[in-house]
Amino acid sequence: MTTLFLVRHGRSTANTAGILAGRSDGVELDETGREQAVAAGVRLAEVPLVSAIASPILRCRQTTEVMLGDRAIPTEVDDRLTECDYGDWTGQSLKELAGEDLWKTVQQQPSAAVFPGGEAMTALSARAVAAVRDWDRTLRARHGDHAAWVAVSHGDVIKAILADALGMHLDAFQRIMVDPASVSVIRYTDARPYVVTMNSLSGDLAKLVPPAEAGDDAAVGGGAGVAGGPETGARAAEGTDEPRVG
């Protein structure tokens, strides 16, 4: 089994301005966003990461660089983890966009949403899920079954990946919260993905990497927890935060 740490970029200048940045050039982390990236790096410091994969968008590349600091971790960019192409919505005020008819579709039936001049949300989901599944197989082949790796991407992209891991239809993905610089963890096994934690904002993350002797089966009855000793199955380990689902 491999463990994926999904990190959303830190707060950006567009986030604070209430603008839908999308793929706009020049949108950077603000001061708080940089502090958040540093904090995420501290949380991941004891995680034995074998690789980092990032969206090509500047705010994600900045988050990755700040978060990893001087750690010698191979880092690559994957276009499939890029932000949604919001088309004509790019750069517009979120308050103004909330009055558009399409806004309701995005909220209630995202599988039917196609942004004018841009991308369908189903296409976003397909490319994002394919990216993490492909990287999971690649890194597992390179580093073994217990490799841990990090991917840095965007809110809607991460929500789509989590929805897939949870077995949820895309139309339910707006129930998932993904805050700036939050960490969500998925453990991929031959049997199924396990969502370990979502939207985690504080605490050490090293304990979420399973021991080498962990298996692919879920612990019947829920198991003993992280501190409960060895058990059969790849249980969904408790994080330092409760999963936050909207």
Rank of each mutant, 00 (worst) to 15 (best):
V38C: 08
D134T: 13
G99H: 13
L29E: 00
E31L: 12
V196Y: 02
G41C: 06
D241F: 06
A212V: 14
H154W: 04
G99P: 08
T138Y: 04
V185H: 01
T75S: 06
G117I: 03
G87Q: 06
E100T: 15
A123W: 04
L205P: 03
T138F: 07
D136A: 09
L201D: 08
A52Q: 06
Q108Y: 07
L124P: 05
L170Y: 10
F115H: 00
G233K: 00
D190Y: 06
V150K: 06
H9D: 09
E238G: 14
L201A: 12
R140G: 01
P56M: 07
V209M: 00
W149E: 00
V106R: 06
D30A: 08
G18R: 08
T240C: 14
D190H: 10
R192Y: 13
R34T: 02
H169M: 09
T32A: 11
G167S: 03
T138W: 05
G233V: 03
P210Y: 07
L94T: 04
G118Q: 07
L205Y: 02
A224D: 10
A214Q: 14
E65T: 15
L201H: 09
L205A: 02
G91C: 08
H143S: 11
A163F: 00
W103F: 15
D241K: 05
T75H: 02
